[in-house]
Amino acid sequence: MELVFLFLWGLLRSGEATGHGTGKCSAPHYIEFAEITIDRIMVGSKVRYKCEAGYRRILGESNFIVCINDTGLIHWTTKASVCERDSGATSQQSERKPENPVTIVPSDTAGYCGIPSPVEHATPTVTHYAVGQELHYKCLSGYNARPPTSDISTCKEERGKTFWTRLSLLCTNDSKSGEEMTQPIPITGSTGCSGID
């Protein structure tokens, strides 16, 4: 009986390592003058496709995909089409800034999802990160005035709440005064945590 319990406990723990926890983290911490990259997207992470200017989401078509594990095969759910030309759009569309400047780095690592499949006239953005997901922060070139110049934030779950671990990274701009450079950028304890929509 004890052996069966240990086996089941091991299966549950391995599920957590691949993003099978119940919670998800949404928007990560932002640090001025730093870039954020992700090289291994965990099972349970969610991506939203946002239509380009002049296009709109097809009525009734979901614009989300999820990194899933189907019988041992880890992959993104697929989308053939999400956006269609918006006939009512004006020719002077404003440029939209990305909501989540996280760069997904191509990775051949088995057991993780890679870059989401391209969808015509749409840009993918990770909106929910699985528990255990790591984001790599690095100061932009020329803005690394203080060590450390890189750090990792991890999506964690404790007592039913999800949060990003704190960062000790401080990237500064050379044009700031000495007084401004000594003050750390405030980071809240938990940022935008929620479950999958």
Score class of each variant (00 low, 15 high):
residue 5 F to P: 06
residue 10 G to Y: 06
residue 12 L to R: 11
residue 12 L to A: 14
residue 14 S to N: 00
residue 15 G to P: 14
residue 18 T to G: 03
residue 22 T to F: 15
residue 26 S to E: 10
residue 27 A to K: 07
residue 31 I to M: 13
residue 32 E to L: 15
residue 33 F to K: 09
residue 38 I to K: 02
residue 38 I to M: 06
residue 38 I to L: 10
residue 39 D to C: 00
residue 40 R to K: 12
residue 42 M to L: 15
residue 42 M to H: 03
residue 43 V to G: 02
residue 44 G to T: 00
residue 45 S to T: 04
residue 46 K to G: 02
residue 49 Y to G: 01
residue 49 Y to R: 03
residue 52 E to D: 10
residue 57 R to G: 10
residue 61 E to S: 07
residue 62 S to L: 07
residue 63 N to C: 02
residue 64 F to A: 03
residue 64 F to N: 01
residue 72 G to E: 07
residue 75 H to C: 09
residue 82 V to A: 06
residue 84 E to F: 13
residue 86 D to P: 06
residue 87 S to Q: 10
residue 88 G to E: 02
residue 89 A to W: 03
residue 91 S to W: 12
residue 94 S to E: 07
residue 99 E to D: 08
residue 100 N to H: 13
residue 103 T to D: 07
residue 106 P to N: 13
residue 112 Y to D: 03
residue 114 G to F: 07
residue 115 I to K: 12
residue 123 T to E: 08
residue 124 P to A: 07
residue 127 T to G: 03
residue 128 H to A: 03
residue 129 Y to Q: 12
residue 133 Q to E: 06
residue 134 E to Q: 03
residue 134 E to Y: 00
residue 141 S to A: 11
residue 142 G to R: 06
residue 143 Y to Q: 01
residue 145 A to G: 03
residue 146 R to Q: 12
residue 148 P to S: 11
residue 151 D to C: 00
residue 153 S to I: 00
residue 153 S to W: 00
residue 154 T to I: 10
residue 157 E to T: 15
residue 158 E to C: 04
residue 159 R to N: 13
residue 159 R to G: 11
residue 160 G to P: 15
residue 162 T to S: 13
residue 162 T to D: 05
residue 162 T to G: 04
residue 170 L to P: 02
residue 171 C to S: 05
residue 171 C to V: 04
residue 172 T to H: 13
residue 184 P to T: 07
residue 184 P to V: 05
residue 185 I to E: 14
residue 187 I to A: 04
residue 187 I to E: 05
residue 193 C to M: 10
residue 195 G to D: 15
residue 195 G to N: 12
residue 196 I to L: 11
residue 197 D to K: 05
